[in-house]
Structure formats: structure tokens, C-alpha cells
Simulated assay, not measured.
Amino acid sequence: MPPTTHSPAPDHRSPATTAPTPPTALTLEERMAFVSAAMTVRLDEAKVAYEVNTAHIDTEPFDLNDVVTSPLDPVPVMLHDPYQTPVAAILQRAHQRLRTGGWCSGALVDEDGARCMLGAIRIEARGNKGVEADAAAVLLERIRLQFGDVESVPAFNDSHGGGRIPMRMLDHATGVAANRGL
């Protein structure tokens, strides 16, 4: 028998088919476009989920009185003077008086009973002119330290349209007087 030769197996690939090309790196703009498209899909899904999750919520208007409440006692009542020194105690009581009775400018006491800084100090000094003068001096010193050259406590008081800053200065002066033992 004649020797047999084996011929190679027939190639089933077409000559036009080639190996796949390796992926090319995307440009920044292309990557950003893909991320933008992915985020749009995620946001759309989140929107649908939100609408489904909140569909049962009652959207009727509500009364703010049901939501906003105020404290039963809006201003705490001072039962005793926490400061043992006379000037600090007067300044603290004057601050408390302005909080409870109101602040005014242009007069020691207005027609509603509100007081200016000096009016509050004067009423809390209860006629003791020496302690009144010491309290006003500490207060004026503290005012000048923070605000520069101010003529007097009444001038400072009247230069403000509201009591927030004058009351804050009374509070600061209280601490100064207490630290000095006045």
C-alpha cells in the first residue's frame, strides 16, 4: 500500500475574518458623555422611586399653629442673683429687666414701661447712687472697649434701633464686674 499522506485540515475561516482589535482608550469627552448618560438613567430611576414612595403622602395645606409652638414661659424668671457682688448683681438684674420689661431708646422709661440701659440700671440700684454710678462706669468702659469712643451709656443706647446689642453689652459688663469683684 502506498504511503498515505495526511493533508492539513481544511481551513473553515474565511479569508476576510481577522482577530478582534484591542479596545482603544476613550477620550475625556467620550468618558464624560458615558457618565452623563449613566447619571441621567440613575436620576430618572430615583425620580420614579421618589414619586412611588411619596404618592401616599397627604399634600393638603397645614396650619402653622400645629407645627410651630412657643415655650410656655418665654423668659426664664430669675429667682435669685447669681452674682454676689453688688455691681454685677445690678447689671445682671438690669439685663433681666430689659428682657422681661422691654427695651427702649430716647427715654429712661417709655409710656409702655420699657427702659433704656441706664433706666434699667437706675431702677435696679434702688436709689443707691454709688452702685448705680459704678455699674454705669463698668458698662461704659465695656462699650468703649468694643465700640470705640462713645460719649455715654444713653448715647450708646439711643444709637441702636433694637435692644439686642445694648442687652448683650449689659451681659458682658455683668461678667466684667463679677470678675473684678465689683
Rank of each mutant, 00 (worst) to 15 (best):
A38E: 11
P154N: 00
A25F: 12
V138W: 01
W103L: 00
A33D: 07
V150A: 03
Q96T: 14
A37F: 01
V48T: 12
D63E: 05
A49L: 12
F62Q: 09
P2G: 05
A88P: 04
M169I: 11
W103V: 03
D171N: 12
D58Y: 15
A19W: 04
E132H: 04
R93E: 02
S105G: 13
T59Q: 12
P76L: 15
T69R: 12
P86G: 00
A137W: 01
Q84W: 09
M39L: 08
P20D: 05
L145T: 01
T59M: 12
G175H: 12
R144P: 00
G119P: 05
R97N: 13
A25D: 06
A89E: 02
A173D: 00
K129D: 11
V176F: 06
T174V: 13
G113S: 02
V68M: 08
S14P: 05
E151W: 01
L43C: 15
P82L: 09
V109L: 10
F62G: 04
A137Q: 06
G148Q: 00
P61S: 14
R164L: 07
R93P: 05
G106A: 03
A49F: 09
L182G: 05
W103F: 15
A173Q: 00
C116T: 04
V48K: 09
M169T: 04
M169H: 06
E60H: 14
S7L: 10
E124D: 11
L118E: 00
G119R: 02
A38H: 08
D63A: 09
L182I: 08
P74D: 06
L64C: 06
P74N: 07
L170I: 04
A55W: 05
A107T: 02
T21K: 12
T24W: 08
A107K: 00
D73H: 13
H56R: 10
V75C: 14
A178E: 10
T5Q: 14
A19C: 01
T100W: 03
G127S: 02
F34N: 01
V75G: 03
T85N: 15
D58K: 10
S70E: 10
A107E: 01
P82Q: 12
G130R: 07
G119I: 04
L140I: 09
E45Y: 14
R99S: 08
V138F: 02
P20Q: 04
A94M: 03
V109Q: 11
T17L: 09
P76K: 10
